[in-house]
Amino acid sequence: MKNNGNLINASTARTIAAHAVLITYTLIALFPVVVILINSFKTRKAIFKSPLSLPNSESFSLVGYETVVKQGDFLLYFQNSLVVTVVSLTLVLLFGAMAAFALSEYRFKGNLLVGLYLALGIMIPIRLGTVSILQMMVATDLVNTLTALILVYTAQGLPLAIFILSEFMQGISDDLKNAGRIDGLSEYRIFGRLVLPLIRPAMATVAVFTMIPIWNDLWFPLILAPAEETKTVTLGAQVFIGQFVTNWNAVLSSLSLAIVPVLVLYVIFSRQLIKGITAGAVK
């Protein structure tokens, strides 16, 4: 009996210690984000006087947001980011699923070789080809267009997408596809009607993995599309904040404006994302 009591105490102590460590780290993870968000709603004086307190009726101010809305064209940047991300994502998912289907469904000469060739891009960053990519975009007159970014991000996202999707497609039963073939469905219909709906969960995983680096990228927008009308949110925020280094209200507000959409999307999709990471790794 005594022994039992000791065990329970030990495990309670361990649980408390675990919670303590996790809560500490959660605070470390969230603290900077929270500090930025609460201070963006304060007057300049309050930002400096008490950076860690919540805005109250006295210190509440939207002056930073007013500056941002007046000066920066954030709506346009946001729209650019959205167009680039959505179109690249669609292309990655469509082309990726098609290639993954070809590689996992059919035996043909060079199957393995093509698979390895396409997987190379998982390890080799596309940035290393930047000099040539820029020359190519200059030659085809695509500099400062969203098309340039879409092409680059599609190429960047494809290798991992093909890799994950073909792993999933190998798990789909042949009987189903053969039944479709007997019913006279063409290979394209088998892909579109039978296979695509079945790999939807894998597509969601790939979507999240592809989306985050595209939305957050600074390198290619900076090099391929720095013009005012093609700036993405990330580049826009970078340039804008650079201009307003001394205007703390504006800086904090523009940071908050860049954080909030991502945060909202994350909260909506976090379950999917975490499931995706854990499912991919369990394999």
Binding site: A29, L218, T234, Q238, A258, V262, V267
Partner: peptide
Amino acid sequence: YRTSIFVPTILSFV
């Protein structure tokens, strides 16, 4: 905990 600790990862470098 999982969700919160992952928050910084989704933010951009900027």
